[in-house]
Write a protein that binds this DNA or RNA. Structure first.
Lengths: 141, 141
DNA sequence: ATAAACCTGACTAAAATAGTCAAGTATCTT
DNA sequence: AAGATACTTGACTATTTTAGTCAGGTTTAT
């Protein structure tokens, strides 16, 4: 299981977007400057977010990105999935691994990873972008 | 954050050890055969487990490894820590990253990772080796 | 027209992972 | 005492992933 910078950047960028997305689209250049994330890398990340319909793009001058749903409806697990942060525990059924085919014969820890996966996903499913934005604003005061 | 094969193997091997550790030490060779994990890799892993006093070694013929505590007292977080599975989310305070020094100025997602870390660690702290062994025996019937 | 900003795909250095390999040392059995 | 079993240690390596960079587009407001 991994949670890497890409996922973190995605969340940081979306929190930023949610805060500044009132009327006008927010350019990646601005997010890049505010959050200290490379513009090129942001473009990769937003490409994925757009494909998963988490954001919408507005091309041309004064363009940028806009949230595609309300911040309340965007859950963290949606974000991580979009940028390929697989909240997946290590597979234990590579071919011919003893005692686990994932079905009738399970390796001794198979259920454990399932539980863990659920545990983490539940955490992410409960948190919305809005929660994070509020959190952030409160702490700024 | 990562959970990789090393952590999984450690847990698999210890569950195996806990089940067969009645009177005699269990050899890595046996664990290797039963669990389908390379002997050399197991040796690396058990070296770490021994240093953290999770297992004890018995050298010589008929030697092997023995649990150093009761299975009930060995929690999963102890195991993961021992084999360097850092349940650590990505750091967000690499030098000069904007808006986060981990202290007075926190990046927008700083608290999130802290919470997540706690969430996962709680899961691991609640699960003991004994729980897994029981789980496993029950499912075998 | 031109500049801002999105869009796409290919490329790469560095790190981590999942091992392997080799050369031991300790201890039990015979 | 010899031999076998099994732990012990450290170095080495192929592969994969990550975290970007780079280059060359296209779209659209002004």
């Amino acid at each position: 299981m991994k949670l890497t910078s890409r996922g973190r950047y995605a969340v940081m960028a979306l929190v930023d977007l949610a805060r500044f997305d009132n009327i006008n689209p927010v350019s990646l250049r601005d997010i890049s400057l505010r959050q200290g994330i490379s513009l090129d890398y942001l473009e990769q990340i937003f490409s994925k977010l757009r494909k998963k319909e988490i954001v919408q793009s507005v091309r041309g001058t004064q363009g940028g990105y806009v949230l595609n749903k309300k911040a309340k409806e965007i859950k963290l697990n949606n974000i991580f999935e979009a940028v390929d942060e697989k909240v997946k525990t290590v597979q234990c059924n590579k071919e011919s691994k003893k005692g686990c085919n994932g079905k009738s014969i399970k390796c001794v820890t198979h259920n454990l990873w399932d539980e863990l996966e659920n545990h983490i996903n539940n955490f992410f499913k409960e948190k919305s972008l809005e929660d994070l934005v509020k959190d952030n604003i409160e702490r700024r005061i």
